[in-house]
């Protein structure tokens, strides 16, 4: 390679994107990290407090509850919005009327989480909701579901799955379509049954797409904000808060910017840890996953 004497104009192509990312994301990350070590209520200047905010994240009961809820969101998403659609995709592949099912499941994914929340709140509320009359006609009177702190996180996760399921299903169907036929046919000829074919042949071939979906599912669920916020604002009280809602509430409603920022950092660390494999694979040149 020849050595260059003039400044390399190739960097000019890179600079606009880099500048945007620096200003919109990387510098803010540094700021937020700094705030996370301070106490700041907006009206008096930030005061350095070391790690005490982080200590609070893991010792304050409401925040422990958010950590627990966020864990539920991640687990629920992985089971019901990743594993389950993979299973359903393999079922849909068995039936002749694929496109009808595909359409039905993909429609909710075209709505935003905000819209999904608005729909489902109307379905679930006790006054003029869609669900209660059906139960009443069967002689069952349900207590209001959303304000019930024991079950509402599960209901909110259900709404998210309703919304998120279709896009992953579509991905898996695409993946299944692009899998070469030969290994499967070979396995079938060797006498493998459906389950064996799936676990030993189909799934390994789907691995790249599964990894991508898993990484996205973790990142999306770990920062879940929209659905619990639109449907019940993390309530009643703070019962159904996720980390992202706690962050918002601590920062913007309770004016503990420092604590809010440290929650942001904690979410980031979890997200980075969870998607580490994805990142590590990216680190290798030319490997797209």
């Amino acid at each position: 390679m020849k050595s260059q004497t003039r400044p390399n104009s190739a960097y000019l192509f890179l600079i606009p994107a880099l500048a945007f990312v620096l200003v919109a994301e990387l510098i803010p990350v540094i700021y937020t990290t700094y705030f996370s070590f301070t106490e700041w209520n907006f009206i008096t200047p930030p005061k350095w407090v070391g790690f005490s905010n982080y200590l609070n994240v893991f010792t304050t009961p409401v925040l422990i509850n958010s950590l627990k809820n966020t864990a539920l969101w991640v687990i629920g998403t992985l089971i019901f919005a990743v594993a389950f659609p993979l299973f359903i995709a393999s079922l849909i592949n068995l039936v002749p009327v694929k496109s009808i099912f595909k359409a039905i499941f993909i429609i909710p994914s075209t709505f935003s989480p905000t819209v999904a929340g608005i729909f489902w709140r109307r379905v679930l509320v006790s006054r003029q909701g869609a669900l209660m009359p059906l139960f009443e006609s069967m002689g069952i009177t349900l207590q209001p579901l959303l304000p019930n702190p024991d079950i509402n996180t599960y209901i909110l996760i259900g709404v998210w799955i309703w919304q998120y399921f279709g896009i992953n299903l579509l991905l898996f169907l695409v993946g299944l379509d692009t899998i070469p036929r030969d290994p499967i046919e070979a396995a079938v000829i060797d006498g493998a049954n459906y389950r064996q074919v799936f676990t030993h042949v189909t799934f390994p071939l789907l691995r790249p797409i599964v990894l991508l979906v898993v990484a996205n599912a973790i990142i999306n669920s770990i920062r879940m904000f929209d659905i619990p916020w639109v449907m019940i604002e993390g309530g009643p009280g703070r019962a159904s808060e996720t980390l992202a809602i706690s962050l918002y509430r601590e920062s913007f409603l309770l004016f503990r910017m420092g604590l809010g920022s440290s929650i942001a950092v904690v979410i980031s660390i979890f997200a980075l840890l969870a998607s580490y494999r994805y990142l590590a694979a990216l680190g290798k040149e030319k490997v797209a996953l």
Binding site: P149, P236, G237, A239, L253
Partner: peptide, 16 residues
Amino acid sequence: EIVEHAVDEFNSMLVS
């Protein structure tokens, strides 16, 4: 700081 905390707790009072 007391009100905000109390309001959250009172919400939980309403359901439990």
